[in-house]
Every structure is written in structure tokens, then in C-alpha cells.
């Protein structure tokens, strides 16, 4: 039986996108937009932080995009998309009222409910903050159930900081610690310059009671896992979100096969220990 988890409705056909309407557009960065989408019938869209959808641009193509919105606001489906090629370009051209095809949600997300009681270290690189945002919302909505909460974010330059308003808001809170670093900056940038792993070295958390959620380019995740392990975090409590080519998200197309898993169904979020062997194998 195929079930469309977003609507909990049984669907005959897992390959047919549903049409959603673009109800809000926010230009986050010159090459990145956030789209607010609404189901035509006003159905809520239930999902777990870290899950993704297959988004279809009419006649152009379909690509996997993480959900960047808030699980507690299921009336609004939110995606943050960086323009890199033909499909993402088509999304950047959409206007309010336009339609977009949605299939999902798919995959296994961040284990927010299983890490209650621990310190939480969230490490994002570049656009990797988008798939992490639902986890941040969820942790903050249940703030009392977690220990220290640390958000460490790295971007290329100060102009590439995603969700800047939210970063400011989070920085203003007393119940979490946010640190930002950029690869390079013009004179006048008051913040840090370097790589995100440097932030891990100085962050305040109890390594033995820490769960870490890491999302960014693979190389950045590799260094981040190493830095966390160096601090004494058990890598079985480190979670990474993998990116692989995907054409169907159902386990049929073979593109995201990663060892004994399909990233679309068994991931994209994996406990690092379960994939460490392949993660450190060249070209796997």
C-alpha cells in the first residue's frame, strides 16, 4: 500500500505529484529563495524535521528539496532552494499563485525526539542550515527538554548567511548559544573568520551527554564529525544528512544507493556510526 505521508491518505500512485500553490516567496540570498506552499484543498502537511519532498517544475524536472519550515505549522509547507541548475532555476522564477508539484515527505529525518535530555549541538554549513531549521524549531519549541543548545553555522562570506533575521533572533536568546563563522570577509566584519570546525573546539557542551546534528557539504561534515569526536562526543550520537542524486525517492531508481542503504528511504539523515565505513571511502 502506498501512503502519502504528508496527507496520511492512501495513494494509488506514489509517482504522481500533487499540485501545490505558491503563496509566499522570500528572496533569502541572491541565489536562494524560500517558497511557502499550500495544498489546493487546504490539507495540512505533516512531516518530521529533516525529511524532504520531490518538487516538480512543470515540464522541466523534479528534484529533492528538504523541508525548511516548522512542523508545528503544518498549514504552511516551506522549502528553501538554491539555484544551481535548470529545475532550481525554474523554481526561482515562480510567482505567487503559480503551481508546483509536490511528492512526499520522504526519508528519515533528525531524531529530535530521541535525543531529549542531551545537550544538542547543531552544525550547519552553507545551505545545510535549511534542512536543520525544522530541527531547531522543534528543539526550541520544547526547550525545557534539552540540555545546552548550541548552533554553529559556517558560510562562505557574510553575504551568504542564510536566514539572517532568524540568526539575529536566536543570538538574542539566553537559552541557546549561536556562533557564526565565515570563510572569508571584508574588513569590518565583526565576527569570526575560519571554518566551522573551529567553533566546535570552543563551544560549551558536555561531550558525554551530547547529540550532534550536522548538515553541509560532505567535506565539511567529515571535518565536523572529526572535531566532535576529538571533543569526546561518541560518534553514535552524531547525525549527518547525506546528499545523493535522486530521481524517484521511492527506492526504485537506484541513484541514491549508498552501501546497503538507499539515501531516499534509509536517510537522508543517518547516525554517523552506521555509515562511517563508507563515509570515509573514496567515491562511494
Amino acid at each position: 500500500m502506498n501512503v502519502h505521508p504528508g496527507t496520511a491518505k492512501p495513494v494509488e500512485d506514489p509517482m504522481l505529484p500533487l499540485t501545490y500553490e505558491v503563496v509566499g516567496i522570500k528572496k533569502e540570498l541572491p541565489d536562494t529563495v524560500t517558497l511557502d506552499l499550500r495544498a489546493p484543498n487546504g490539507m495540512p502537511f505533516e512531516f518530521e524535521p529533516g525529511q524532504f519532498n520531490m518538487l516538480y517544475a512543470f515540464g522541466v524536472g523534479e528534484i529533492p528539496i528538504s523541508i525548511s519550515g516548522d512542523t508545528s505549522d503544518p498549514m504552511q509547507l516551506v522549502h528553501t532552494i538554491r539555484v544551481v541548475g535548470k529545475v532550481s532555476q525554474a523554481f526561482a522564477k515562480l510567482k505567487e499563485g503559480d503551481s508546483i508539484g509536490v511528492r512526499g515527505p520522504y526519508g528519515v529525518g533528525w531524531p529530535v525526539n530521541n535525543i531529549k535530555g542531551s545537550d544538542v549541538v547543531i552544525v550547519g554549513g552553507g545551505l545545510g542550515l535549511a534542512p536543520l531549521r525544522p530541527a531547531i524549531y522543534s528543539v526550541l519549541a520544547n526547550r525545557g527538554q534539552f540540555g545546552n543548545v548550541v548552533i554553529l553555522y559556517g558560510a562562505r562570506t557574510p553575504n551568504d548567511l542564510l536566514f539572517e533575521e532568524q540568526l539575529h533572533e536566536w543570538r538574542g536568546r539566553f537559552d541557546l548559544h549561536l556562533d557564526v563563522i565565515v570563510d572569508r570577509a571584508e574588513a569590518g566584519w565583526p565576527g569570526r573568520v575560519g571554518v566551522v570546525t573551529q567553533l566546535i573546539d570552543h563551544a560549551v557542551f558536555d561531550p558525554e551527554e551530547t547529540a550532534a546534528l550536522v548538515c553541509g557539504p560532505e567535506i565539511m561534515m567529515r571535518y565536523a564529525v572529526q572535531a566532535l569526536a576529538d571533543r569526546g562526543v561518541d560518534t553514535k550520537n552524531v547525525y549527518v544528512s547525506m546528499e545523493r542524486n535522486m530521481h524517484c525517492a521511492l527506492g526504485f531508481c537506484g541513484h541514491c544507493q549508498f552501501g546497503g542503504t538507499f539515501v531516499c528511504r534509509d536517510g537522508p539523515v543517518f547516525a554517523y556510526d552506521t555509515i562511517s565505513e563508507l563515509f570515509t571511502t573514496r567515491e562511494a
Binding site: 512543470f58 515540464g59 524536472g61 530521481h247 526504485f252 541513484h255
Partner: peptide, 15 residues
Amino acid sequence: TCFCAAMEDVTGLDP
């Protein structure tokens, strides 16, 4: 047994 497949999205003469 190989099952890998690629999706191709197309528009015809009718946009």
C-alpha cells in the same frame, strides 16, 4: 536484475 532508471521531463509542441 539491474533496475536503475532515470526520469526525463519533457514538454511537447504544446507548452
